[in-house]
Design a protein around this nucleic acid. Structure first.
Lengths: 208, 208
DNA sequence: GTCTATAGCGGGATAGAC
DNA sequence: GTCTATCCCGCTATAGAC
């Protein structure tokens, strides 16, 4: 891994190209030559910057997940009123997926592959932090008497996260089905859905 | 496609083995020889029963989707009170995924691959019917004054379906994260989540 | 750091015996 | 219907010139 000189945006070019191809086609369906072509770089160069194809794949995942703001989980703890914290988490999630459109596809693939056994630890640990932050948040809401106590905080957290996750994974198909070009990519439409998720989730949680 | 003689459970064996491998690894990462091994059948036989690998893949999808009860969408129309209809749809969805555990993974992969461009038409049309049935259902609930009218019926339908879909797609990972072996496969645990989804969704929809 | 050439392997698919 | 043998191709990865 060479120093980040100017010349080594070759490395970046490879990473960028690979991210797109891996997200769209998966690891095995993507060839070295394809990556080289997409990056505008000699395919053999890949082996100068990375040990092999698998290492490149790991690097791609790592890089995307690192950009993935840790703030997501932090936000869940920081915001004062519980309902604001939940809203913040959902909108932050939308923000992340908007700025990193490849992430949901890559994650979906990782989840589906190999019983998630090889699902990058980085994904697993992130998901775990996020899920337990949300679970705690909901518990707190219950203790304060704001939320109904019959709901399982853990299941409710899954319900909350599932909505946006699925929205983005099924994105391309949803656009066809709903017959609305861009609903899962245009910031306005996405935030409208995120806002819906917030309201829907809070309505599902709050005392009547 | 030979007559369904006794001898042709060879064909079935191939389909079964292929379904598992495709769901877990995808089309390209699964080799002919692997399928043969898993099916306990000579790999070359694959070409006696199917034109090529792609044709086998289509056959696998077709077969799984056909087992997928059309009743799912019908149920949405048939049940009398709106809330019962929603409950019926969600539990039916759980039932289908339980009896066809490969389906969600296969669907997730189809969605992630190739911008869903080649997402089997059969998936698309099914999803469309289900989604619009649910949307109509929710609209009806609003007209009857049972549901809040600020909610977009279409978005709410997405929220409702997303929960179980995501639950099953992320299943293997969720089991690791929640540290609960089997939550996404054992009928009891699954129906408990389905029941949660029903209550959560109705709470999100109903007037306070 | 970048490029060419190529080794070497494993994949899909077919021919043809049984 | 099943099996063996094999062709051919394209892929990953490397060696080595520049």
């Amino acid at each position: 891994m060479p120093a980040p000189t100017l010349a080594s945006d070759t490395r970046t070019a490879i990473l960028d190209a690979a991210a797109g191809l891996f997200a769209r086609q998966g690891l095995d369906s993507t060839t070295i030559k394809e990556i080289g072509r997409a990056a505008g770089v000699n395919p053999a160069l890949l082996y100068y910057y990375f040990a092999d194809k698998a290492a490149l794949y790991e690097a791609v995942l790592e890089r995307l997940m690192t950009r993935f703001p840790d703030r997501l989980a932090e936000v869940a703890v920081r915001e004062a009123p519980v309902r604001d914290a939940i809203a913040a988490v959902v909108h932050m999630q939308a923000e992340v997926f908007l700025s990193e459109p490849l992430l949901p596809r890559l994650m979906a693939r990782e989840l589906a592959d190999h019983e998630a056994r090889r699902a990058a630890p980085v994904i697993r640990s992130h998901a775990h932090r996020l899920l337990s932050a949300l679970t705690n948040l909901i518990s707190r809401g219950q203790q304060r008497g704001e939320f109904r106590s019959e709901v399982s905080p853990e299941l409710a957290a899954v319900s909350c996260l599932a909505q946006l996750n699925w929205f983005f994974i099924a994105g391309p198909a949803l656009e066809l089905i709903l017959n609305r070009e861009g609903v899962t990519r245009e910031p306005d439409a996405v935030h409208r859905f995120a806002q819906h998720v917030v309201e829907f989730t809070l309505a599902g949680l709050e005392r009547r």
